[in-house]
Amino acid sequence: MSRRPARPSVPVTIDGEEHLAYEGETILDLARRVGVRIPTLCQLDGLSVYGGCRLCVVQTEGDHRLKPACATEVTGDLEVTTSTHEIREHRRRIVELLFAEGNHICAFCVSTGHCELQDLATEHNVDHIHYDYEYPRNTVDASHPKYLLDRDRCVLCTRCVRVCDEFEGAHVWDIANRGSESRIVAGLDIPWGESESCTWCGKCVLVCPTGALSFKGRSTGEMVHDPEVISFLSRARREGEWVGRKEQV
């Protein structure tokens, strides 16, 4: 990845205010840099763009479809609207769908209080959902000595899949089946603890936005994830921030 040009030069309007963006920057990057909040879930700085949760959709002038801010690069004189009543309604419905799909019981969750899905629900005023809960019969994988996978809490953001593949290079995780049957599996659907490619690094646990992946032994509300570690590692690698690399210091 090349380093950023010194100066932002692309004029972009976000919600009526003009900003200068770096070339190749995404709408989400720019919005975050200038302090405009766009909700996200699957996106994580440092990991490849997935575009699966669709929470970051924004309206761009002249396009008839909403665009994912995480994957859309800025172009000159782009006009972006990040929040209309309709967009907020779409986002709220998507959050509701995520709750309907899994078995998200906050009261018993290791991550309650530190959960990105929970935060999104609060942000979008989701105090109940308009759809029936699916109550799927999911399985818990407790075979790993250190970590735990509870598929009831998984939102299929694939952060774990991507971090394991792109950072650790182990590619333990992947998605099996399709559609509403999709689920996270280790290896070719073996118990996590039997996976020979897993290095026990725990990055997947750090980046999980919900309580689906956790350290063993944590009780309700005790599991605090730290996805920023990955963002830091990525930025440090890109910007050459490693201590001891003389040419960069």
Binding site: I94, E101, Y131, L156, R178, G179, S180
Partner: peptide, 18 residues
């Protein structure tokens, strides 16, 4: 559509079910 959804994006994966 529900049976053929790949499951990558949330609106289609859960939306078609609902």
């Amino acid at each position: 559509c529900r049976d053929e959804s790949c499951g990558k994006c949330a609106p289609c994966r859960v939306g078609t079910v609902k």
